[in-house]
Computed example of a mutant assay.
Amino acid sequence: MDASPLALGEVMDLLEVGVCVWQLETVGQRESLRLRVCNPAAARFLSVRVEDVVGKQISEGFPGSLDTPLPGVFTNVIETQTTVALGDVPYKDEIVPDGMFSIVVRPVGKRSALVEFTNVTEERRAQAEAKATLAAAAEARDKAERFAQSAKDLDEKLRVIEAQKRDIIALTAPILEVGTGVLAMPLAGNFDLQRSEIVREKLLDVVSSTKARDVVIDVTGLGSIDELTANELVRLTSSLALLGARAYLTGISPANAQTMVSSNARIPAGMCMRSLKSALQLLGEGGRSGITARGSRSR
């Protein structure tokens, strides 16, 4: 069934796609393009009124348009009778505000071009914002992963440092095998909780592996002994007793003796001797066996 001009006009008015028909009045002269059809959607996309642009040459209806590539594209489509899909095209002239348009140009007859287009400015802006958001999220994720890896590397370095620190502390408390079943361990410097734990761990390992029955702990180089240090020494001797080894403390200064007596630490008097030499003489093995250094053992 043939469509009447009125019905065709109503269809054009209902279209959501912008439709313009440009007629080339003079071959080869793009400035002779005259707008013959402009539906409401096209007028809305171009921010113009239909009555202000229909029937006018391109430079009259859209001043500044001849400074853009589109009039040349329309002219070329008419002259070559070839359809061109331009995709997204940025466009702006003195009438049309800056925007992004998706454009297809088709030849109509021998002298006209039908231009179908939509204003995709907001859509492309939203897509660009979404893309930027995704990129920012990806960057944030990468930073978080790098931070997590850095934290993991730092933890590993700290574990290495802690292990090295434990080794250094252990080396400051050498365990000497001074006779059959007899060990001696001189202490020097400060004897805090961390050092006490490491030294006790190392000494108990050596006592267990050598089945030593006597351990002489010399505190001559330990410096001042406070209540915390005295309690740690008691813990050390008690731990040795659980393994069946007798502990002896030597080298306690008069000032440290006063501190230990006034503290809560209870060290039996029989465990205390004046010097490492006297302890070895009492044990009866030091003079005959000689002293051999025993290297530290790692767990």
Rank of each mutant, 00 (worst) to 15 (best):
L6C: 03
L6W: 13
L8N: 10
G9K: 10
V11M: 07
V11A: 10
P40V: 02
P40Q: 02
F45S: 01
L46H: 01
S47H: 13
R49Y: 11
D52Q: 06
D52H: 06
V53F: 07
V54D: 01
F62W: 14
G64T: 06
D67Y: 03
T68G: 08
T68F: 12
T68Y: 11
V77F: 00
I78G: 00
Q81N: 15
T82M: 02
V84C: 03
A85V: 15
P90Q: 13
Y91K: 01
D93K: 10
V96F: 07
V96G: 11
D98W: 14
F101D: 14
S102P: 07
I103A: 05
V108A: 05
S112K: 13
A113P: 00
L114E: 08
F117K: 12
N119K: 11
E123S: 15
R124G: 02
R124W: 15
R125C: 00
A138G: 12
R141I: 07
D142V: 09
D142F: 14
F147G: 04
A151N: 11
E156S: 12
I161M: 04
E162G: 06
A163I: 04
K165D: 09
A173G: 00
I175W: 07
M185E: 08
P186C: 04
F191H: 09
D192E: 13
I198C: 07
V199Q: 03
R200S: 14
S209E: 14
S209L: 10
A212W: 02
R213A: 09
V215R: 05
V215D: 00
V219R: 01
V219E: 13
I225Y: 10
N231C: 10
V234A: 08
V234I: 04
A241V: 06
A241D: 02
L242W: 05
G244Q: 08
R246C: 10
Y248M: 15
L249E: 08
T250G: 06
G251T: 13
G251C: 08
S253K: 01
A255M: 03
N256A: 00
A257D: 02
K277N: 14
S278K: 09
Q281T: 15
L282I: 12
G284P: 01
E285A: 12
E285K: 06
E285L: 08
S289I: 11
G295P: 14
S296W: 05
S298H: 01
